[in-house]
Amino acid sequence: MPESLLQLKNISYSYHNLQAETPALSRISFHIDVGEFVAIVGPSGCGKSTLLSIIAGLLSPEEGTIIFHNPDGSLHYPKIGYMLQRDHLFEWRTVYQNAILGLEINHMLTPENTEYVLSLMRDYDLYKFKDQRPSELSGGMKQRAALIRTLALNPQLLLLDEPFSALDYQTRLTVSADICHIIRKSGKTALLITHDLSEAISLADRVIILSKRPATVKRELPIRLSLSGDSPLAARNAPEFQDYFNLLWEALSDEKK
């Protein structure tokens, strides 16, 4: 059994304003194993993004603890890569300069690191666009550039906040396949938020279903597809796909009533 990289215990969080307190997360507990790809689905506005912000350390939970088990046994906070919904590539930088933004901020512009970024760009067909402006790239290429920007810091855990939601359907299928491939190949642990059930089933090893606000973990569903190749597109044709879809659909429909 693989060791868990991340463990959430009874995480609660509320938003406050002068009128009222709005509970967003209520006693959320789950774990993610090393090398695992976990998807979180839930009704819109249920606090999924809040959960990612807490894991990324941008917000601190009001209650509960987050435990990391670093594979090397050390206690420091692991490096977390957070990919936002939109690519936010800066137009005043070239594609390459955008990709090394994280290295620049962390003063890590060593020859090895920049070479790693260039090799990622070569692998994912961005090398010949490296000196162009982001506006010259297609939506899918922008999303890949944003992923390279996140991977450049060599994170142990990748958080993906609906990274494909801004793309049109066709691009979305190919880009999610591409990105899934990149993540699997590099052996990263990943946590994906999505509202697209098919996407969750085709990409993830395990799906966590959240209830409506205040969010609690409603169900965890391990995904075992017998067709399991590497391709999420092929996964959609697996015989179990429809069953998983129906299971998730029912669990979420309960929530909407």
């Binding site: 936002l84 901020i105 962390n106």
Partner: peptide, 26 residues
């Protein structure tokens, strides 16, 4: 855009980085 500043924080940057890398050029 606040999300552009969040991006800097997700990359481990400080408020100063956010100013230099986003606010000023933007």
């Amino acid at each position: 855009e606040p999300e552009k500043i969040t991006l800097i924080y997700t990359l481990g940057g400080t408020k100063r980085d956010a100013f230099q890398k986003v606010v000023l050029p933007n």
